[in-house]
């Protein structure tokens, strides 16, 4: 329990640092820390497969791309131009409370039902077999639709890169 609390604290702290730190590179590193913390939560739920996938896909592959982009940006200029537009700020004041409200109601509803407790999960929760069964039986259509979407996005990226070349 103590370990989970420590990880939770690190997760929240790193999430705050992502938003508040001035240097984009430091923000990216804290985002990685945050994602690793989430992977550790999966591990504590005995979802070893999810733990590994979270590390490989989110903390690994996706964040490497973030690191890449930030490394190639001209950081000094970016830092000077930091203060954003006014509309952005105004929107943030509206969107922030909305998000908090949505999350709160979701958690509140969930918290009253018995499913919220770890004991309520099926014994195979988060194993490779369980995820495989969900993806290829219960949610096959959604899974395939998402993969088509990704292929389209990939082709789009290739087309954009090609156009600039010629």
């Amino acid at each position: 329990m103590l370990i989970i609390n420590v990880i939770a604290f690190v997760a929240i702290f790193s999430a705050l640092m992502v938003v508040f730190h001035r240097s984009p590179m430091v923000s990216v590193v804290f985002l990685i820390v945050n994602l690793v913390c989430i992977a550790l939560f999966f591990l504590f739920l005995h979802a070893q497969f999810l733990f590994a996938i979270q590390l490989i896909v989110y903390a690994g592959a996706i964040m490497v791309l973030f690191v890449f982009v930030v490394m190639l940006l001209n950081l000094r200029q970016e830092e000077e131009q930091r203060p954003g537009w006014r509309i952005q700020r105004a929107l943030a004041f509206v969107a922030g409370p909305l998000l908090v409200g949505a999350l709160w109601t979701a958690l509140w509803r969930r918290g009253r039902s018995s499913e919220a407790f770890p004991g309520g999960f099926s014994s195979g929760f988060g194993t490779a077999e369980d995820i495989g069964r969900l993806l290829f039986n219960d949610y096959l259509f959604q899974f395939e639709a998402a993969s088509v979407l990704l292929v389209v996005a990939m082709i789009g990226a290739v087309v954009l890169a090609r156009r600039r070349e010629s």
Binding site: V29, F49, A52, I56, V64
Partner: peptide, 25 residues
């Protein structure tokens, strides 16, 4: 004895990338 042993190794090698990228940066 993880039931995802091989994935754990891949995850660790994915984490190792950051050491190199950060050292360079």
């Amino acid at each position: 004895d993880l039931n995802v042993g091989i994935l754990f190794i891949f995850a660790m090698s994915a984490m190792g990338v950051y050491g190199i990228a950060l050292a360079g940066w």
